[in-house]
Structures are given as C-alpha cells and as structure tokens.
Design a protein around this nucleic acid. Structure first.
Length: 454
RNA sequence: GGCCCCGUCGUCUAGUGGCCUAGGACGCAGCCCUCUCAAGGCUGAGAUCGCGGGUUCGAAUCCCGCCGGGGCUACCA
C-alpha cells in the first residue's frame, strides 16, 4: 500500500514572505493536491535574535492571499522545544552527540588556522577528545559518523555526499534552542513528511539532516526535491534585505492578481512541455511534474509578470474586475467605477494603474494655457455636448460631429480637451473622460480653460 | 580553499545523436487600427547552443578539461 503523501513548507519568521517562499509553497501545494496528500505549514522560529511575531502574521497573510492553503498547522518549533531536548538527550546518551564548550572566539581561531594552512575546515572535536573541566554554557554537537550519505533528489536522481568532509555540527545552541539542521529533520520525521520540497540552497544541507534522522533511528523521507532558486535581475539570489521588492504583500498592493503571480511562478523553473502559458490552478495541478522542473536558478522578470497579469485582468468579468479594483479606487462611487471598466480593462497591467487613469475624477487638474483658436474649439465642444445624454456613446457621436465641423484633425481637436479634463497626456478615450465626470464638472473645467463664463 | 548544483536569443524556456539553416513566450523594432495610451492583427531583428578538445558518417544533445554563475561549508534558516 502506498503511503499517503505529506509535504510541508517551513518558513522562518525573520522577515516577510517573499517570492521564494511563494514558489516553494506553490510546488508543495501542487504536489500535495496532485497526490491527494497533505500540506503542512510549520514555522521554523528557532532564531531568537531575528524572529518577529509580526513576520509570522505576514507569512500567513501572504500564503492566504495566494490561496496556497495549508491542511495542517501552523506548527511552531518554538512550541516544540521539549521534543528537541528529548531527541538531543537520546543522541547524547548514545554517544552520537556531545557537549561543546568552545567559545565563538575559539572556533573562529580554528577556522582561521585551517584557512592559513589551506586545509578544509572541520571542527577539531576537541570537546569530544578532551572534554574540558569547566562547566558553564555549552552547545550540543552532532558526532558525524562519516562515510557516504546518499539520497534521491527528484530532479537530479541519486545524490552522493562524502560525510568525511563534514565536521561535527551544532544541533543545540547554547541558548537551548535547536539549530535548523537538527529541528528540521526531527520534525520532518515526526510529522511523517514523505517528500521534502524546498529551495536548492538546501541541497548540500541534506546530508546533515539525513545523518540526524539516521542517528535517531527514524525513517527517512521517501525523496527530496530541490527546486530552482528565484534570482534577482542581476543573477544573485533573492534576499529579503537586498530585495525588498520581493515582498509578497507588495505584489498585492501593486495590483497583481494572486492567480497571475501563481501562474508566472509556476512557469519560472517549470515548463509543461507544450506551448501553453496560461493555466488555471487545476490545470497546473494536473500538468505539474518534477521531471520537467529546471535545475538552475531563474531570474525574475517583471515584464513577463506584467504581461501575464494583463492577460488575467482581461479575462475577468465586469463584476470581478469591479470587485478587484474597488480597494484601489475607494474614492470612486460604484456606478462610475463600473462605467469605467470597459475602457480600463484593456489598459491595465496592474490594478493600481487604475488610479492614474481615474484620479482626474476626484482631483481638479490645473487649467492649461490655451490660445484663442483652441479656445474656440473648446467652446465648440461645450456646445456640442451640453445637451446630449451623458453617456460615452452619445458624447462620442456629438464630439465626432464637432470635430468634422471644426475643420481640424481629431488629434488637434481632442488633445486640448483631454488636457483640460484630465491634466494628462495619457488618458482613457476622450468620450470616457467626459462621461465619467459629472456633466457640470466637465463643462466647468472646459469653460474655465477657455476663459468663458460658467 | 573544499564539497555540490547549474551554463541554449536581453529574460523565461523547447530541445535527451540526424526532423535544428535551433522552436515558443516576454521584451524590443516596423506596419495596420487609432483622439492619447493600451488591447488586437501582421512583419521583423535577436542564440556560431560558455570555451577547448575528443567520440561519431553526423553533437546543443555523449565523454574529458577549462572558464563562468550560484549554493553549502554559522551556536541563520
């Protein structure tokens, strides 16, 4: 009987959730849904120095926004300290771990020395071979048995690491908290995680964690999948500090649709083997497979995301787009917003751009300086529209007639009108600029610009 | 330094020995449409497949070396 799939994501609340978090979560969810498995959310909050509770909130909020819902959790490592203590005690008792009293300075000196002698650094094991007399603060080190560690990576096949190159590493810090290399494999084992799907930066961490699992006598995960990293535009790895723009909350604020971001992220590093680029989530679940995942990192491309986001915006129904837009233009009344949608829909790449197209509705632009001829045409425009029904189509018909009568081209006729009404060089079609404005406001703006009595 | 991963148009990629004079998408350029900006339609530029050796009748695809990028090597995760 096949064991049911259990996967997890384990972000640490030392910063906002970023693109990498989303990407890893996505692949986990895709696999979980496809295999009818369980997706667990665990918060790896063992870094006392850098953890912040508000970051955890941000992570949950980001994942929820992206609809990457977890089935179990969030479990917090900070609430499982007893477990790690117990597991560490087992290792200590079995002689598979030992107390280390070395100070950071001493360790630093060891490292420097190794570097000086041009030999690869490995902890000297002095606290194992010569346990110091003094008591006091100590960390717990795992006694690396050496030999070879092998495991299967779902992308790369059989991986083999030489454990003789790995020094004894710390599993419990002197503050009593477990390190990542310890807590993570312990939890994965206890939570019966079957497939560890995570970023490629963890590929060479895997042997550490496998040795811990083996040392404890737990069952190993069935397989690992180390997914390609998302790179910044310059090819470097995305980091929270260097790349604040990768904050997922920011994507929401800029007006990216969560399903568009998901679609883009899925394509970044994975490809379906067909030329399809736009996928529903269900289609992704069906189509996803690890053997079509890229092995190398991929740069994040805003342009392509913008295009996909535009595609998604254009697919939305009038009601859906209205709902999505509302938070971005809360100044605007519902009816006006709905009337603007047809003109907006083909123009937006991000929802927030709606503000640039609509803010003339609640912000009076300064009247432009116009010459006598132009004033005449503005006046003609006023005459043309002042008695027509106030909807874009009627306005357009009236204006077209006025243009024909004026003897000048549309561009020459419309440009000063657009300028007067919106104060902008780029705007919605002129009849929308009229129609969205209350009639009296539109006429007043024109009259003022043409220096006419209102 | 050591270990590991990766290397096809600017970017994301297709490609697993002949179908590749290397395909698609984004972006870019031009044209059409057009009151601006988009959207849409059409056309186009853009990769000697990191480099050098092999293997083979034939290599982007296999082998070796080199170079380049990234990751790990923390009492960060």
């Amino acid at each position: 009987m096949a064991v049911s799939v259990r996967v997890r994501i384990a972000p640490s609340p030392t910063g906002f959730a970023h693109l990498g978090t989303a990407s890893t979560a996505l692949y986990n969810v895709l696999f979980a849904r496809q295999q009818k498995g369980t997706f667990v959310l665990r918060i790896d909050d063992t870094d006392l120095e850098r953890n912040r509770p508000e970051y955890e909130l941000l992570i949950l909020e980001s994942l929820t926004w992206l609809a990457l819902e977890w089935d179990e959790g969030p479990l917090r490592q900070s609430e499982r300290l007893d477990i790690y203590k117990e597991e560490a005690a087992k290792l200590l008792q079995a002689g598979k771990a030992y107390r280390c009293f070395c100070t950071p300075e001493e360790l630093e000196a060891e490292r420097k020395q190794a570097q000086l002698e041009k030999r690869p650094y490995k902890y000297s094991r002095r606290c194992l071979t010569n346990p110091p007399e003094g008591r006091g603060e100590f960390a717990v080190r795992f006694r690396v048995p050496g030999g070879e560690v092998t495991f299967t990576d779902m992308l790369r096949g059989e991986m083999k690491f030489d454990a003789d190159l790995i020094g004894d590493f710390i599993i419990v810090k002197s503050d009593g908290y477990p390190t990542y290399q310890f807590a993570s494999p312990v939890d994965d084992a206890l939570m019966k995680i079957t497939h560890v799907i995570r970023g490629e930066e963890h590929l060479s961490n895997t042997p550490y964690q496998l040795m811990v699992v083996d040392g404890l006598g737990y069952e190993r995960p069935v397989a690992y999948a180390h997914m390609p990293l998302i790179l910044a535009g310059d090819g470097s790895k995305l980091s929270k500090r260097k790349h604040p723009e990768s904050n997922l909350i920011l994507f929401r604020e800029l007006g990216y649709l969560s399903e568009a971001l998901i679609n883009y992220l899925a394509l970044l590093g994975w490809n379906p083997g067909t030329e399809q680029e736009i996928f529903t989530f269900e289609q992704l679940v069906q189509a996803f497979s690890f053997d079509r995942v890229q092995h190398g990192g991929a740069r994040f491309d805003w342009e392509k995301l913008n295009w996909i986001n535009g595609e998604y915006i254009r697919k939305l129904s009038l009601d859906e787009l209205t709902d999505r837009l509302r938070p971005f233009v809360s100044q605007l009344d519902e009816a006006t917003l709905r009337r603007a949608i047809p003109a907006l829909q083909t123009r937006l790449h991000k929802l927030a751009e709606a503000v640039d197209y609509l803010d003339f509705l609640w912000t009076d632009p300064p009247p432009p300086a116009i010459d006598a001829d132009t004033a005449q045409r503005v006046k003609a425009a006023i005459e043309a529209v002042k008695d027509v029904p106030w909807d874009p189509d009627s306005i357009e018909a009236a204006l077209e007639k006025a243009v024909a009568d004026s003897g000048v081209g549309k561009g020459k006729f419309y440009t000063p009108l657009r300028d007067t009404l919106t104060g902008k060089k780029v705007a919605l079609p002129i009849h929308y600029c009229f129609g969205l404005l209350p009639k009296d406001v539109a006429l007043a703006r024109l009259a003022r610009a043409a220096n006419l009595p209102v």
